[in-house]
Structures are given as structure tokens and as C-alpha cells.
Design a binder for these strands. Sequence first.
DNA 1: TTGAAAGCGCTAACAG
DNA 2: CTGTTAGCGCTTTCAA
Lengths: 412, 412
Amino acid sequence: MAGRSGLFFVSPLPAVAGRSGKGAGQAGLGPAPLNPQRTVGVCGYGPYLAGRAAPTGRFTRSCPFIVSTPVSTHRASISDLAAQLNLSVSTISRALSDHSSISDATKRRVWELARQLNYQPNQLAAALRKGRSNTLGVIVPHIDGHFFALVLKGIENVANQAGFNVMICQSNENAAHEKKNLDTLLNAQVEGILVSLSLTTKDVRHFEDVRRRDLPLVFFDRIPESPQVSAVVLDDYQGAYQAVEHLIGQGCRRIAHIGGPQHLNICRNRYRAYRDALQAHGLPYDEHLVYFCDLTLPDGLQAAEVLLGRNAPFDAVFAANDLAVAGAMQVLRAAGRRIPQDVALAGFSNELFTLLTEPHLTTVDQRCEEMGRTAVRLLLDMVADQTRQLPPRQIVLQPELLVRASSQRLGE
Amino acid sequence: MAGRSGLFFVSPLPAVAGRSGKGAGQAGLGPAPLNPQRTVGVCGYGPYLAGRAAPTGRFTRSCPFIVSTPVSTHRASISDLAAQLNLSVSTISRALSDHSSISDATKRRVWELARQLNYQPNQLAAALRKGRSNTLGVIVPHIDGHFFALVLKGIENVANQAGFNVMICQSNENAAHEKKNLDTLLNAQVEGILVSLSLTTKDVRHFEDVRRRDLPLVFFDRIPESPQVSAVVLDDYQGAYQAVEHLIGQGCRRIAHIGGPQHLNICRNRYRAYRDALQAHGLPYDEHLVYFCDLTLPDGLQAAEVLLGRNAPFDAVFAANDLAVAGAMQVLRAAGRRIPQDVALAGFSNELFTLLTEPHLTTVDQRCEEMGRTAVRLLLDMVADQTRQLPPRQIVLQPELLVRASSQRLGE
DNA sequence: TTGAAAGCGCTAACAG
DNA sequence: CTGTTAGCGCTTTCAA
């Protein structure tokens, strides 16, 4: 199939194989031959260091990596056990799964041999036979960045606890890629799918296949606009509303907004909350104070520049994410604005770095892990429901406003 | 048996001939291309909002999510196709994989029906039969945080291009968990494994199983101390050495170090480079200027406090990672130290947030994606080698020092 | 160019 | 308590 391009694209330094420089009992140097007969030993070796000589020796540590001859490359199967014990494969199978109808004596024998032969069950075969892959699929826009990483952690925890593996796909914010991801998951026979839409997904018909197969499907965070789907989301509206209200409470009257792509539910809701909060407090909406972008760091920088250039004074910025507001802060400070005295700032997502900026950033926590856990629980409920008749459910998590120095103009 | 702790990380499979799709009559041969589809219903619905009433309607967008009754929940298999076309399963199988010995006419009929029935090959069955799962396994300490996320991205790219899926496990910095991860991967019949050791892994004997089975194994970044393994690492020594040398070049004479756990090769090498660089430039090593910890944010805060409290003046800090130095910076500034005039700072890893602090942090780039790509290429070479005789290789990537404001005391 | 048949490793009736 | 048997869906000889 796809060619394996075996070229190594490595930096100048040639590969260092079996480099040493240590005094300790070095076994093999250089291209170590395979099958060094049962060398069960301690070996130390130098650091991967280029150039400089190093006062080594004292930094090595013992390394009990056993190098034993591969006894047999053959993977023990259930029938190997059966043959060796003069039992039938079904007995072995049952013994291994601790079936009640197998005598303790037999079980013990089986387990012992399994241990000796280092038997590992073949999940593929079991899944094929049982018709259950014990695997869930997830499609996320990307994996780098705080939010999805934490959601995935939540998903993994609950799923694993329930005995499921999780297969992850990244759509790279690309709708076509997302579609392929879906095929991949279907081919892998996953038992249910979790999805957070890509930035460029404006058409969700590719999820119809899933539906047609009665395969449980749950969206989270970035979801399509249909009450017919099951979904878990944060109450972005609420979080944003609170953030803006907080800024108003600090005496801000001209609050700017850096918003994200409006076809995404999350960005739209944050923007809407911004408008509503202003209105609820009798403040006018001024479109000169609003800037839409993709919320990257460069976008944040540019947003601040544009806002400053518009000649529409503002005393606060609420951005739809933390990165944008962090970028904006740099530009604002460079322009001589004091934070929060001149301009108060609030972001969204509670990224780790909001505690690394000076001042720390006010933000809204998204309950990442909880979102993951909730979504997978919902999915597992659907998977467990044989009838496939469960009505779609939508679950809304409550965010938490975290007030920090970037927005505190009054004594707390 | 082995606990489930797997996260599969997958992406588009190599095109499977006769991929589904609906829409107008696709005539073409070969892997059916994505198809343009017509819009079908439109439905709008309110936002997931709790509490406040919202001026809905204007913010909804069209949603062509089709709600159709599940026609048949039965997944079409190869034998269904065979039955309907009066062909044998083997012919179908061959046609689907575009085998040369099948007539074009037959292929066309097969593909067409496959499309109609929305046939999706069962990977499990294929893998079982072929004895090849087309899956690689990866064990990382965690998935949140810049570094591993990017390495994984690199791994995914290359692996997918070569037609492999990737299964990810997180050890959560826990050696016991790492062991379970390994079982999970073995059970899933992966064809090769990539590992970056957990913080608490001091004994690597559990990888012996892998070796005994002749399963290709490549370590990256955090690796065991043995020349017998294949590994890809950054030249941490070189990167740290350059960073410290840079600080010296800026006029710093009393440079402190915040170091990580010394049983990890990466931390040890950074520390060693720190000492060597000092020595090479005739500066004394003073243990009062060194603080070891786990390099978290709180650790960084504490490190600075301890260093300040020791009454051993210092004019620079080189930390083994960015988080620690970012934390230290906060404490130092709070204590009235100007950065970089009083204390110059340098970290390690090139985290995104190094561009969000004030001033920006000098750091060392780790070539994350390249590390992932390189590691998986090495692994794929081993997988491709039927003989299993390839000698272990170690590849060293060169880091890049990124000088930023936190350490620039002289005009560039 | 197509078909028949034999499994991959495991599970689960159904019988003893 | 244990064994026999029949597949899960697919690939792959070997024959036609």
C-alpha cells in the first residue's frame, strides 16, 4: 500500500549507535548484533551529546534492560494452550474468562501456562467474533491546545473505566478530513462516535451514514444546529454574559469584543451574550468596538491594532478566547494602555497561560474534563441501549467565571 | 486481563476501493471520490442556553441534518455483495481491492453495488486474516501540553501517510499505568510501538515482552539507558549548553539552575550541560544556585523563592523547562528584580506561552513534530524489515536556541 | 477471469 | 465440568 518512504530526515548529526564513553561494563558497541545470548545485565551509556566532551560516569544510572534471545516469535494462542494441556479450546477460553463452570484446578493450570507462555488474547479475533469492538471513536478538530486535550482526558478516563478503548481522529479543522475520519471510524467498527465539529464544517450531512446505521453519535462543544442530535456543550452564553457583566460591574462602559467565526455555535453564543449583557445594562452596542477573526495569537495582536486605530475609545475587551486577549494585551500595553486601569480584559477558556501573563487574565473555565466525561457517559448510555430508541439528549454544563487581576479595577 | 487504557489516534485510511457515498450516479472507476450532495431539509433551533431568554431566530443557521428512518441496521458484508451479484466472495474481495485479475465490467458492478449498499469493509476481519493490524501504538506520559501534542501530530502525519493507524496511550506519568498501556497495545495487535517513558518509570523491564516478541520498539525523548534500544532524542545537552553560554555571553556570572528529575535523561543532560558550560567559561559551580523539582508552575514559583532566600546572589536563571522559568519570573518580579537587567532568564521547550509573557522568554526549541516524524519513520523501517535483524539505531535531533527579551541585556 | 475451500483466533450454542 | 461444532468477515492459496 502506501509506500514507506524510509528516508530519514535527520539533522546533521549522524546517528549515534551504541555510543558510549563510559567506563562501566559495556557489552556491545556499534551495531549491536541481535541475539546477544542472554545478556542480562546492567549497562550505562553516555548522553546523546554532540561535540563537547563530558565528565560522564557519575551520571549514568543502572539500566536493567534485559536482552534475552527471542525464544519464539510465535504468539501463543488459545489453541497452543489447549494442545499443551490436553484440553479443548473452549475450556481454555472459558478458563481465561474465569467462567463459573470451570474447575478451579483447571483454571489454575490454564492461568499458569498462560503466564509462562506470556499469552496475550487477540482482541481483534474476540471483537470479530463477538461483534463488538469495544472501541469508541472521537473526532476533534485538533489535539494540541489545552481544551481538547483535557476533554480527551475526561473521555479516556470514563471510557476506559467502562472497558472501552478510544480511537481519536483529528480533522485539522478541515471538513473533508472530518469526513474521512468518519469513514475510518466506521471501518474500524467502533461502537459509538463523539464529534466536535471542525471550523470549516458547514454541512453535516456526512454524519447521516452514522445515523442510518443506528450507530450512537454524540456531539460536544462544537455542534450542529439540530435538536435531533445528542450533544454536550458548555453554556457559552452564560459564561460570556457573566464575564461582560463583571466588566460592567468594574465600571467599564465601552467594552470591545474580539469574536470568533460566527458559524460556530460557541462563538456565536459568546457574541450574543456580549450584546445582550450590554443591552441589559443600558449600554449601547457599537459595531466599531467589535472585531471578528479566528482567535489565533496573531489575530489577537491585529484585533487590538484595528480597535486602537478605529478612534472609538474603549475601556475593556472581552474576547471569545484567551489567546486573542493575551495577544491584544501585548499590543495595548505597547500602546501605553495600563491593564486594567485603562483597559480591563477578560477572555474565555481558562488556558494555563492565563496565569503566566502579567497581570493574570480573567477568564471563563470550560469544564473541559467534565465535558469529556459527560459526553462519553451519554454515548455509553446510547451504546448500551439495544433498542436504539433513546431520544436525543442535550446536556448543558455551567461555566465558571474566574476573576483575575486583568479586570479588577475596584477593590474586590 | 489487561486494563483498557487505549486511545486510538487515527486518521483517514488509505482509500478503500468502492467507498460509499450517495448522490448522483457516480460512474467513475476506482475509489469513489467525495460526492457533491444536494441540500435536503433545513432546520433551526435555539442555542443551548440556560437562564436568559434569547432573541433567537436571527442567530440560527440552516442545518441540513437529514433525519431519515434507519433503513436497515444490517451492515453489508462481502458475502451480501456476492449473493446479490451471483459472484463468489473471493471475486468480490478481489474486485474491491482492485485486483488485476478481475474484469473491469465485474469491478464496476461490484463497486456500484458496494456504493449502493454503503458497504464498509470490516477492518477487524481483514486484520485478523492478514495477521496485520496496520496499527502502531504510542505511549506518552500525557497528552496535554505542547510537546507531546506536537510530537503526536508528527507521528500521525507520517504514519497515516504510510497507511497506518496510531493508537495512543497515556501513562499519566505512572509506571504501572505504562505497563498496562503496553498490554493494551499488545492485545490490540499493534505492529510496532513508540514510547516516551513516564516520570516514574525507573525500571524498564516491562518492555522485555515487546522485545521477546520481536515487535519493533522505538523510544523517543525520554528513553531508557541502554544502547540496545532504538531511540530518537533531542540533543538536550547541546540546547542547554547553548542557552547557558548565551547567558554568559550577556554578561551573567552567577547563573542559577532549576532542574528536573535527574533519573530522566533529558533533565540530566540539561543539568550536565549547565555545569559544563559554566566550567568551560571559568565560572564556579555553586550548589546554592541549583534547585531540583518536577518543573511544574508551582515548582517554579517555589524555586525562585528558595533561591532568593538562600542569600546567594544570582543574575540569571536557566530552567530545564519553560513553565518553571515562567513561574520563577513572577516571583522574581514581585521581589523587585527587573528582567533581564537584574536577572536574565532562559527556559527550555519553546512553549507557546513563552510569547505571551512580558518580556518574552528565551527558550530552546525541541523540534517536536520532527521528533515524531523521525521516530515513526524509524519504527516503520523496523516494521518493514521482515528479518527483524536491524540493529538498534539512535537518532539525535539538533535543538534551536531562540533568544528573546528575557535574556537580552546587551544590544543584539 | 472466476470459484471453492481453508483458515486468522476467538466465542458460544449445544451436547455430553 | 468439558468437548464439539459452527461461525464472525475477510484474504488467499489452489484449481478450474
